[in-house]
Amino acid sequence: MNAMVKAEGVHKSYGAVQVLKGIDLEVAPREVFCLIGPSGSGKSTFLRCINHLEKVNAGRLYVDGELVGYRQKGDRLYELKDSEVARNRRDIGMVFQRFNLFPHMTALANVMEAPIQVKGETKAVARERAMKLLDRVGLADKAGNYPSQLSGGQQQRVAIARALAMEPKLMLFDEPTSALDPELVGDVLDVMRGLAEDGMTMIVVTHEMGFAREVGDSVVFMDQGVVVESGNPRDVLTNPQHDRTKAFLSKVL
């Protein structure tokens, strides 16, 4: 089967600072793929390259077999137009550490916005799906609340519903629970667990080792822009082979 995400020698630098130094990895469809690593190792940057919020400097990234951000003709690469990039992003949901809900819209309007604006759905259709999704994340009764009237955990669940409303084939999570109070983390992880059970392909940057172990199909440990170690969560998390992995895990576990 084709990989859902395939990275080949992905490099990214900001000016002289090399953040990603050749990332190779593959994410299979329906896989829950956890990315762990110390702060500054380039996890967020890699995630943002996948939906072309950042341009890679070298290497190739494929989502569902299609090159991200470029079109290849012969041995030449052509940059995609903004509209084409936007079109490809429809199929990739993203959830941010800081939620980034639209504060001037209610929870329901947040979830309805993209299907109406991007896909041209009618309000009625969008509203029906949005209500279903809010119900799924346990927030049907908060549909009329503005983000400022929701707790962090509730905001993050609305953000997940908002991403799901575009019916993506891939979901990217960038530390979805690290801005949350400990007692709110569980609700968000439950929603993500449910998504995993339904067969969503997910790449999850996380510090929740419990989640990685229970829900993850594979774990990749990144440090200083390279993949240090990867494999089955049980192996990587309980029996790490590299010193850097051991040092990191001893700090977070």
Partner: peptide
């Protein structure tokens, strides 16, 4: 306006113009 807003809108597939107007 926080940059995260533009980012979230772009990640949902919204175009530059729509992001400006709606978000």
């Amino acid at each position: 306006v926080d940059e995260g807003q533009t980012e979230a809108a772009h990640a949902l597939g919204m175009s530059q113009g729509r992001t400006l107007r709606r978000i």
